[in-house]
Write a protein that binds this DNA or RNA. Structure first.
Length: 549
RNA sequence: GGCGCUAUCGUCUAGGGGUUAGGACGUGAGAUUCUCAAUCUUAAAACCCGGGUUCGAUUCCCGGUAGCGCUACCA
């Protein structure tokens, strides 16, 4: 075991699909451990399965990690002292180690066919025995084996498992021991010449001087085989830490049918990266005796402790993630308003409010417009509105657009605290963009308010006050409400509910002091979807309702 | 089937031989702003079962049960 050495850990995903949240958690724990110990965090791409590996997943995986705030010191893109960092570039190394093992008789050629092996396995299962390899080729004379190979007979290479129990230490689970009875000689190189995962992973980890192997506990049963490889090769065995599985609400391994499972999914939902990191860190780990829930990245690095990681599997709780996300959304909004030095512009929107990449911002804007214009009787199938934003609209930082962005900023700032996911903002803000007077006047949800005795009077009075105010400055807003209050005697709900129905079609919604200015300002902007002014809304409502002046 | 891992409120967890078993999410109730959301207060809610060790076990040991994983010429 490497002593006094600097910590070196690695995250070794296969680029076969979207980065799964369980793997992200593994990456995070490796990274936190490395950063705390002042060690090295390595990214290695495990693409020995050439059939399923794709280059695009490799790039995406790196982007996902960066988005989350995880950086690496060595990897396929940045290089490092122990290249290559992609397994497919390393085949000859694996082969030469295998030849060495054969020469030292620690491994041997196996001529059994796949069908033969499968038959043995089935039989063992039927007889309720451990399905081990029979050991048939174990004692074939090396010279004989060479002859058969030369004759063209296909052969895999198997490792000779020692005759004693294999034990290793696991930081999360303590000492683990496997009887050699249950670990039968594993294949390390296929008859095709392709080496097998359980073998290459050892060589890679040893070559890269990995000190701690932190990975998912689905590897725990493989570990004895790997330890045997270390020992056969005479390489130092690292420390292991096997992290528990993340489950869905039904206690099955978290998968797509449970909803979001990839980093990309969470990003699209408007989960902030720091919220995701915070939540994931708390899934299977908690600091001693602490009641803290919200941790900055720095706090996580300082307080993380591999020894305190829980061995039991954890169910992924979306509700708690959303709650944490809300905490971070609020924090962002607060820091935005308490830092007046930052102009409320496109840039600040990009960098402070929407923690998203450019493409994401564009998509969120699009969604905002798309969804809102469909409200309220939405047919979600009709989801393709003009993608005006893509046409460089966002990139043109003209003065006019600065106003638009400022307005969007206010819009998001008004509705974001109502949301625990950023993608919810669009839905919340819908009434600003879409106003349907007929719906407002006849929606059954509004019936109770509409039928109450004071309602008509309040609506009429508000309408008159508003329409006869020549200039509606925001500081006059309260005086309008005071007027209506005085003339009708209505207060509280009786006052505000009818007016809100008239203006946004629903009796509940944000504070008028913020909402009305926002609507008025929006109505004067050149937006792709016209925001109806208060005046327009009042008039349309009156027409739909048959309201007389 | 075999082997392995795991087991504190519904969920994430703290704790630990004697505790009113703590916190958070969620849930219920109340307060509050015109409403909803948010916020605040508050309530209900847990040591898987059986043996052993011990004066005492939720905590330590053994067994059972259940869940999950592995059982490949996948990673």
């Amino acid at each position: 075991m490497p002593q006094n050495d600097k910590v070196r850990v690695r995250f070794a995903p296969s680029p076969t699909g979207q980065l799964h949240i369980g793997n992200v958690r593994t990456a995070l724990f490796n990274w936190l451990f490395a950063r705390q110990k002042g060690g090295t965090f390595i990214l290695r791409i495990e693409d020995t399965d050439l059939e399923r590996s794709e280059a695009r997943y490799e790039t995406q995986l790196m982007e996902d990690l960066k988005w989350l705030g995880i950086d690496w010191d060595e990897g396929p893109d940045v290089g490092g002292p122990y290249p290559p960092y992609r397994q497919s570039d390393k085949m000859d190394v694996y082969r030469s180690y295998a030849e060495r093992l054969i020469k030292e008789q620690k491994a041997y050629y196996c001529f059994c066919s796949a069908e033969e092996l499968e038959r043995d396995r089935q039989q063992a299962m039927a007889e309720q025995r451990q399905p081990n390899y029979s050991g048939k080729c174990r004692n074939i004379d090396p010279a004989e084996a060479e002859r058969r190979r030369a004759a063209g007979e296909p052969a895999a290479i198997r490792l000779r498992i020692p005759e004693h129990p294999i034990r290793f230490h696991d930081i999360v689970r303590g000492d683990v021991e496997f009887s050699n009875e249950v670990v039968s000689d594993p294949i390390i190189v296929r008859s095709s010449g392709m080496p097998v995962y359980n073998y290459v992973v050892v060589i890679d980890d040893a070559d890269m001087k990995i000190t701690h192997v932190i990975r998912g506990d689905d590897h725990i049963s493989n570990t004895p085989k790997q330890v045997a490889v270390y020992e056969a090769l005479g390489l130092p065995v690292p420390e292991f830490a096997h992290l528990s599985t993340i489950l869905g609400p039904d206690r099955e391994r978290l998968s797509k049918r449970h909803g979001a499972t990839s980093v990309a999914n969470f990003r699209e939902m408007g989960i902030l990266p720091e919220a995701l990191m915070n939540y994931l860190a708390l899934l299977g780990w908690a600091p001693s005796g602490s009641n803290k829930e919200i941790f900055t990245k720095e706090e996580l690095i300082r307080e993380f402790d591999l020894n305190r990681v829980t061995p039991s599997p954890a169910i992924f709780d979306f509700q708690k993630l959303y709650w944490i996300n809300r905490q971070y959304i609020k924090r962002r909004l607060v820091s935005e308003t308490t830092q007046p030095a930052i102009p409320p512009s496109y840039d600040s929107f990009l960098h402070y409010l929407m923690p998203l990449q450019h493409a994401d911002v564009r998509r969120h804007f699009n969604q905002l417009i798309q969804r809102t214009s469909l409200y309220p009787r939405a047919n979600l199938a009709v989801y393709s509105l003009p993608s005006f934003i893509d046409k460089g609209w966002l990139d043109t930082r003209s003065v006019a657009n600065e106003h638009v962005f400022k307005w969007f900023l206010d819009l998001v700032a008004l509705f974001a605290p109502y949301s625990d996911r950023l993608d919810e903002v669009a839905r919340q803000a819908a009434p600003v963009f879409h106003y349907d007077a007929g719906f407002a006047a006849h929606n059954s949800a509004n019936a109770e308010v509409l039928n109450s005795p004071q309602t008509l009077n309040v609506m009429r009075t508000f309408r008159n006050s508003w329409l006869h105010q020549p200039v509606h400055e925001w500081n006059r807003l309260s005086s309008i409400f005071d007027q209506v209050k005085m003339q009708t005697g209505a207060t509280g709900k009786a006052l505000f509910h009818p007016i809100r129905i008239m203006l946004i079609g629903s009796h509940s919604g944000p504070d008028f002091n913020k909402l009305i200015p926002l609507i008025e300002e929006g109505s004067r902007l050149q937006l792709p979807v016209h925001v109806k002014s208060i005046r327009e809304r009042i008039n349309e409502f009156a027409a739909a309702q048959g309201l007389k002046p």
